[in-house]
Write a protein that binds this DNA or RNA. Structure first.
Lengths: 125, 125
DNA sequence: CAAACTGTACTAACCAAGATAGTACACCTA
DNA sequence: TAGGTGTACTATCTTGGTTAGTACAGTTTG
């Protein structure tokens, strides 16, 4: 389901957050689909449950998943996530990053048409 | 020139790297324009020169700036940076991030036309 | 030449964040 | 009842980031 990169300087719990968020927003995990349990994922990735727990807790705070004690954790609906308190800021942050990325790709010599093409090429992947 | 956010979990040297890279790729710093000296920036930001040095060294490795001992550090030309050893990987990484960002913005309910509009809105900012 | 810059290169030390280990409780389901 | 689940702690260890200090060589300016 997920792979960790120990060479990466980013913390493990951050890699897990990004990986799960990526699967949720790209539709690989459908709304209300059950995520792996904290303990099972800890076994699979051979890391401490507390580290998984931290990722899940933050994803829940940010509205990408919801957890039911005793049952499990589940992917949120995009519309629900968008209503989250944190999300006006989140969206502004995403747009800022998007502009920076595009600026760097232009700096490296890519044309806008190529950049837009690359975005759509990746749909569903 | 730059501002640091101590609430941010990202390391200081990383914030400096991103800030300078942003100014270079967006054209705020023109090719061959001189950057602040390591020591002067350390005084301005009230942090240790070693921390600035680390940011400069990595930016040089990645091709965004070049340094001349005794003189100073300068912004690279985009074309030169693009020829850097690290840059095929870099470009692939940027495209991956771009797709993830777009996927999340779609998940939050934005249309492609709105996303593209937001990119061009920000030109020169 | 001299003084004051510049980048570069170390060593040593401190500190906070990340990660681990362990335990415990309450809830759900087969 | 047994075994799974999320939640919530405490204590400990390790690592990366940051600081402090010193030093050397090259450039520029007076």
């Amino acid at each position: 389901m997920l792979t960790l990169n120990y060479r990466d300087s980013r913390p493990i719990y951050g890699q897990i957050k990004d990986g799960l968020r990526r699967m949720i927003v790209s539709g690989i995990l459908e709304p209300d689909e059950k995520l792996p349990s904290i303990r099972s994922m800890a076994v699979d990735l051979a890391i401490n449950p507390n580290t998984i727990r931290r990722a899940y807790a933050e994803l829940e705070t940010e509205g990408f998943i919801y957890s039911v004690p005793g049952k499990g954790s589940y992917a949120s609906h995009g519309a629900d996530a968008a209503r989250m308190r944190s999300h006006p800021d989140r969206q502004a942050e995403l747009v800022r990053r998007l502009r920076d990325l595009v600026a760097e790709l232009r700096y490296l010599g890519l044309k806008d048409s190529e950049i837009i093409a690359m975005i759509n090429e990746g749909v569903g992947q």
